[in-house]
Design a protein around this nucleic acid. Sequence first.
DNA 1: TTGTATGCGTTATCAG
DNA 2: CTGATAACGCATACAA
Lengths: 330, 330
Amino acid sequence: MGSITIKDIAKALNISISTVSRALRDSYDINAQTKQMVVEYAEKMNYRPNPIALSLKENKSRSLGVIVPEIANTFFSQAINGIEEVAYERGYHVVIFQSHESQEREISNIQHLFARKVDGLLISLSGSNKDISHLDEYRKNNFPIVYFDRVPETPDAHKVVVDNFEGAFKATEYLIQKGKKDIALIISPPTLSITQERTAGYKSALEKYNIPVREELIRHCSFQKDEAEQAIKALLEEQEPDAFFMGSDRLALNCYEAFKKWSNRRDIPLVGFTNLGIAHLLEPHLNTIVQPALDIGRKSAEILLDVIENKRRGKGFEKVTLGTELNFRS
Amino acid sequence: MGSITIKDIAKALNISISTVSRALRDSYDINAQTKQMVVEYAEKMNYRPNPIALSLKENKSRSLGVIVPEIANTFFSQAINGIEEVAYERGYHVVIFQSHESQEREISNIQHLFARKVDGLLISLSGSNKDISHLDEYRKNNFPIVYFDRVPETPDAHKVVVDNFEGAFKATEYLIQKGKKDIALIISPPTLSITQERTAGYKSALEKYNIPVREELIRHCSFQKDEAEQAIKALLEEQEPDAFFMGSDRLALNCYEAFKKWSNRRDIPLVGFTNLGIAHLLEPHLNTIVQPALDIGRKSAEILLDVIENKRRGKGFEKVTLGTELNFRS
DNA sequence: TTGTATGCGTTATCAG
DNA sequence: CTGATAACGCATACAA
C-alpha cells in the first residue's frame, strides 16, 4: 500500500527521476528500451502518480465541484449520477456539496470548493438566493461554471435547463382539457428561474383557452412542509380550485400530502413537476412532468469539461434546453 | 481570485516565509508584534492556506471517501447527509462514489479513492460482493475504514448497523399478531449481512409463536425490478401468502409495485424495511421499519475521524448497533 | 538520450 | 526571535 513514487522507480532502476517521468509521460526523446523498462517496472509495482503532487504542480485538481440544494432529492441525485458518469469517464472526480436551500451555506460551500482548487463548478442555485453576486468574482475571472436547473438570469453563463415553460404549459393544458378552469398553482419562490418560466407557461395556457388568470390561485412556497400545507389548506378553503398544479419538485410531494390530508375529493386532478419515481403508485393519482435529470447532469458536465479543457474556444456562452417527459393518465 | 500565498505575504511585509508560516501557525518563538502584523495582513488579503500543498506535505488530504451502492436511494442519501455534517464540522470533505451494486465498480472506486489519498473510507458493501478480499490490503495496513449498514462478517472491523434482527422480528411479530401465518419474506442476496440478520429475526418471531418456517415462502432477490416482480408473482400464485414482509430498502418498493400489479387483495398486509419517505401516502398502506440513516451516517463518520485522528488508541474495533423505528398502522 | 536543477505552497529543522 | 534550506511528488527547462 505504501504508494510507490517515481523516485523509488528511479532508484531501483538506477536512472534519474526525470527519465522515469519522461518514460511514463511518453515524452519526446526517450530510448525505447529505457521506456519499456520503466513502464514495465511501474506496471509491476502498481505505480500510480500522486494526484496531489500533480495538482500542486499544475495548479489544478482534476476535480469538479457540485453544489445542489439537497442530495436526498430524486432529481438532484439523478443529475449527480449523470455528472459523475461523464466526469469519471474523462478522468475527473466529483466533490458534492449541499446548500440546503440556504444562500449562506451556498457561499460557504463555494469558498470551500475554491480553497480545494476544483477546476470547475456545477451548481443549481439555492431557493433563498437573491442573486449570484457571490459568484461575481469567479465569473469575472472566467472560472468555469455551469448552472443547471436553477439558473441565474444573466446571459453571460453556461446553463442547462429543461423547457419549463413548455412543461408547465402542457400540464395546464391537460387540466384545461379535462374541463378544469380554476387551476391552482403552487410554485417555488419567485426568485428562481424555474418559478418564472413555469408560471409563464401556466398563464400562457390559460390565455390560450381564454380562461382569466386568477392571481389568488397562485401561491409561492419555499420548501418547508408546513408552508405547502398552509397554502393548500387556504386554497381549498378560500378559492375552491378544481385542479392543482404543483410546480416544483419537492413542493409537489408536500402539497400532495397536504391535499390528501385536507381534502377527500377525488375529482380534483393533481399534476406535479417532479421526478419522484413512485408517483404512479399514489392514490389519488399524481400526474407528473418529469425532468430528464440524468441527461441534464451529463450535458452540464460535458459543457463544463469542454470549457475547462478549452475545447470550445470562442464559442461563447451556451444555454441548452432539454424537453420534459409527461406522465399523464389518459 | 488569484489566491494569495504565504510567499506573497512575506514579500509584502519584508520578512521571511518561515516567519509568516510561524505567525500564522501560532508556532512557538514568535514576536507578538510580528505575529499581529502578519495575521492582520493575512486577514486583510483573505489568505487561505493551500490545502493541496498541505496534503502533499503531510501526505494526507483531509478528505473522506464514501462508497455506497446508489446515491438515489433515500437511505443512502440520508446517511451521506449525516456523514457530511460531521465531516465538515471537523474540517474534512467528502468524496462520494457509487458502486451500483457491482463488486467490480466497488473495486475500481476503491482504487480511485486511494489514488486520491483519502484519509479514510466509509463503505456500505455492494449487493454482489462475494467477500471483502479487495480490501484486505488496506485492512492489513490499518487503513481507517468504517463499514455501515452492509458490513462484512469479520469482527476485525469498525461497523455501524441497525438492529436488523430486532427490526425483522418486530415486523414479523406485528403480522403474526394480526393473525397472519403464511408470511412471505422477500429479501436481499444471501451474501449480505443484513440479509442473514433480518432472516434470522423473521424466523425467530415465527418460532416464538410456534409457526413453522416455510422455506418456500422466503425469496432472495437482487435489486432489479423484474426479479422482485417474478418473486411476488410466483409467491402469489404458488404459495398464497397472507402477508408480505419486504426485507430490504429498494426491494420494498419494487415488491410493493409488483404486489399492486398482481393482486388486489387489500386484506394482505405489507411491511417493508425502507426509508422511503412517502410510505404513509400509499394505498394499500405500506408499514415500514425505518433505519436512522442520518444517525448511522453521523456515527460512522465520528468513528472514522476518531480513528484517523488517533483519538481512540487501543480501543479496538467497535460495532455500533442502532435501533430501528417502526411505523406500523395500528 | 539522459541527468541536474527548479518550482508549485507549506512546514520543519537547523543555524544564526 | 528570525531566516535559510530541505522536503513532500512531480514535470520541465536547461545542461551535458
